[in-house]
Design a protein around this nucleic acid. Structure first.
Length: 720
DNA sequence: TTTCACAATGTTTTT
DNA sequence: CATTGTGAAA
């Protein structure tokens, strides 16, 4: 306590009644949460299992658990601490029968959901071009985010999608899930909330249990999570001891159903609520904070909060803005700077490249590979999303749940067993006719000798593999059993015979999977873990540079942060702008705010004059956010409108804040545009001289002497 | 049923 | 571009 500032202390000591803690970036939020947890225990207000602690990511949950263990001096076990979904899964296992599931229901991954939805959609003959299955799945998920069960969808809402059939398909989809004794991710929240809503006895049980509720990242909660929390928090007698921690300026998940309104409305929801603001930032330098604060001030709907430097010494360097010729130069310069930092003795772990969207990572990856700098793409293709891992998991699911039709469908023809769509239909028919799951139907057909040819032989072998594995499972445990199954089913052989270059890596991954399996007591525990915690600690804790999306970087911090791609259309993203309008823009701005505030020492922003998107080059203009950064906190290294080829010479100055090069770009397109006409002779810094062959407001097409015809932003060329 | 060739067609962010 | 889906031939 002694090491905390007065606001932090207030946030911890206000234990009873509703409390909203508005915690700006780097203001010691996690510390407050964990200390508060310990404080409640140590003052005897509650036992560890009487505190419900909800986080948004598995990582946050893990960290919190570790820090609480540290504070308590013993491993934190038996706590109700986890993500919304993990906690709901735990509750739903206890009360599954109330929503027509059994205690052993399966949780579907995205692949399964999609496959199932496609099957369900088939009878409607929806125009798949216009209403793709993933699109419709998104619609359903957003309904679930808002707590809308099929019966609650109003006709108005329905008609917007899939020619008015969306609600009917949703209904059918839910019915099919129930048949399969399965639920998707959204259902975890939806079902539990439904149970709490309709079963007062169950709700009362949790009211008795949870004396205190702690919620992290409250600004990211969606409607269903809000409803769930409110049900649990609103005790019939006495005020709710709910403490929500969040930052409206870091709300960046509205596309996933998050409602900033939840945090904006907190004081209305809980009338006696107290509000504590944490505004002292101990992470970043004064310039970084100034730049971030200046930027976020352009947003309108805010609770209002100003980050103040918590350390007196922290003047630091200004935020750098670098304009470069193209995206290749950008990648090169970022990597060179990173290399230089390492040469100066900085750890690569303290450097991050934060991008807006996944496709931007490739350029850096290629460059770093050439350079030989160790790097890691965080949150890219994750371990459990790889095909071979999902296949292996499907084998395990069938082993543990023979009725898991979706898993069986996934592996029935992997490796090839001569069972295509037609064969699968036959199995389905047999299963339905005998009221059996697919595995049962298959067995039946084999016994009846109703299958012929190689598919029969292969399937018989597969069923035998499962049968023998079950014996082994009982006798020798799940690790040996799974190894046996993958061997006997021919799955491992399939990859061993595969001559493609990534096959050895896949086998390696499968080995890693069986290794992870050993950390769990039973197969069921392992599968539950995988379904909910889709991440995996990869071995080796070397010093590597991180490349990740801005979303992925939330909650992390680094000494140096590179922020490439600050260009209109990329960041702010065109798509968000199109779909979300002003709200979308404000969310992008919050994302920019998150990005800048990840840096402890230094933030370096890049924008390129042109960028390769798919196969061809696209001209791009600097992000409007650059103009919103206050001049006293940034230093702009644009040269020649930001399109210099001598960017390398500039790089010296980036880190010592050398001479400020005059800022010439305001809106280059409009500045240069009027003077150009068809037939004009022009010069381009890179392509040399040419003649304009077409022109519109922003672009011109120029036939160059050396490189042929190019389409360019008119600001890049000069008339001769 | 599988395999191959070719076209099309999007590409944010994730529990 | 890189993946995914579609259609025709083996």
């Amino acid at each position: 306590m002694a090491r905390l500032n007065p606001e932090q202390r207030a946030a911890i000591e206000t234990t009873d009644g509703p409390l909203l803690v508005l915690a700006g970036a780097g203001t010691g939020k996690t510390r407050v949460l964990t200390t508060r947890f310990a404080h409640i225990l140590l003052t005897g207000r509650a036992k560890p299992w009487q505190i419900l602690t909800v986080t948004f990511t598995n990582k946050a949950a893990r960290e919190m658990r570790e820090r609480i263990s540290l504070l308590l001096g013993s491993p934190a076990e038996g706590l109700w601490l986890g993500t919304f979904h993990a906690l709901c899964a735990r509750m739903l296992r206890r009360h599954a029968e109330y929503v027509g599931l059994t205690q052993s229901f399966t949780i579907l991954d995205t692949d399964d959901q999609l496959r199932l939805l496609k099957q369900v959609m088939a009878p409607w003959q929806i125009d798949i071009k216009r209403w793709s299955a993933p699109g419709l799945l998104g619609v359903i998920q957003r309904w679930k985010d808002r707590g809308l069960t099929p019966e609650r969808i109003t006709p108005t809402e329905d008609s917007d999608f899939a020619n008015g059939h969306a609600r009917a398909i949703y209904t059918a989809y839910q019915a099919r899930l129930k048949q399969l004794n399965a639920c998707d991710f959204g259902d975890l929240m939806l079902h539990v909330t439904e149970i709490l809503r309709t079963r007062p006895d169950v709700l009362a049980q949790y009211h008795r249990l949870f004396r205190y509720i702690l919620v992290d990242e409250y600004q990211d909660t969606n409607t269903i999570q809000y409803l769930w929390l409110r049900l649990l928090a609103k005790h019939p007698e006495g005020p709710a001891n709910i403490c929500c921690v969040g930052d409206d300026d870091q709300s960046i998940y509205s596309w996933r159903g998050a409602e900033v309104e939840n945090i904006l409305r907190f004081e209305k929801d809980f009338p006696s609520a107290k509000v504590v603001r944490l505004e002292r930032n101990y992470r970043s330098t004064r310039h970084i904070l100034g730049a971030a604060a200046g930027l976020i001030a352009h947003n309108s709907e805010r609770l209002g909060k100003t980050l103040r430097p918590g350390r007196e010494d922290a003047e630091g360097k200004k935020v750098s803005i670098l304009g470069v010729w193209d995206s290749d130069t950008e990648a090169r310069m970022v990597c060179e700077q990173a290399e230089k930092l390492r040469a100066q003795g900085h750890a690569l772990k303290e450097i991050a490249i934060l991008v807006r969207a996944g496709f931007q990572t490739r350029a850096f990856e290629e460059r770093l590979m050439q350079t030989g700098l160790p790097y890691r793409i965080v949150g890219g293709l994750r371990f459990y999303e790889r095909a071979e891992i999902r296949d292996a998991l499907a084998y395990m699911r069938v082993l543990s749940q023979p009725a898991d039709d979706l898993a069986f469908e996934r592996i029935i023809n992997v490796p090839k067993r001569g069972v295509g769509p037609a064969g699968l239909q036959k199995l389905h028919a047999a299963a339905r006719a005998n009221n059996l799951p697919l595995t049962g139907g298959t067995k039946k057909l084999l016994e009846d000798k109703a299958l012929k040819g190689k598919s029969a032989a292969h399937l018989r072998q597969l069923m035998e593999a499962f049968a023998s594995t079950r014996d082994i499972l009982a006798r020798e445990g799940h690790v040996v059993a799974v190894e046996h199954l993958l061997e006997e089913s021919g799955y491992l052989d399939m990859w061993r015979q595969d001559r493609s270059p990534d096959a050895p890596g896949r086998l390696e991954n499968l080995k890693e999977l069986t290794r992870a399996l050993a950390d769990f007591g039973t197969l069921g525990e392992f599968l539950e873990h995988v379904a909910l915690v889709m991440d995996h600690d990869e071995n080796g804790q070397d010093d590597y540079l991180s490349i990740m999306t801005l979303h992925g970087a939330k909650g992390l911090e680094f000494d140096t942060v590179f922020l490439p791609g600050w260009e209109e259309g990329v960041f702010p993203s065109q798509r968000t702008l199109d779909e979300g309008g002003l709200k979308g823009l404000e969310e992008e701005r919050r994302l920019a705010y998150v990005g800048i505030t990840r840096a402890r020492q230094e933030a370096i922003i890049f924008h390129a004059g042109r960028r390769r998107i798919y196969a061809n080059w696209q001209p791009s203009m600097p992000s409007r956010f650059l103009d919103e950064l206050p001049d006293e906190h940034v230093i702009r290294h644009d040269e020649g409108g930001g399109f210099s080829q001598q960017g390398l010479n500039l790089s010296e100055s980036v880190f010592d804040n050398g001479p400020i090069i005059a800022r010439r770009r305001k809106d280059p397109m409009l500045e240069a545009a009027p003077a150009l006409q068809l037939g004009d002779h022009v010069r381009h810094p890179r392509f040399g001289e040419g003649i304009i062959i077409s022109a519109d407001r922003h672009h011109v097409e120029v036939s160059f002497e050396s490189v042929g015809t190019k389409r360019l932003l008119s600001s890049f060329i000069e008339k001769i």
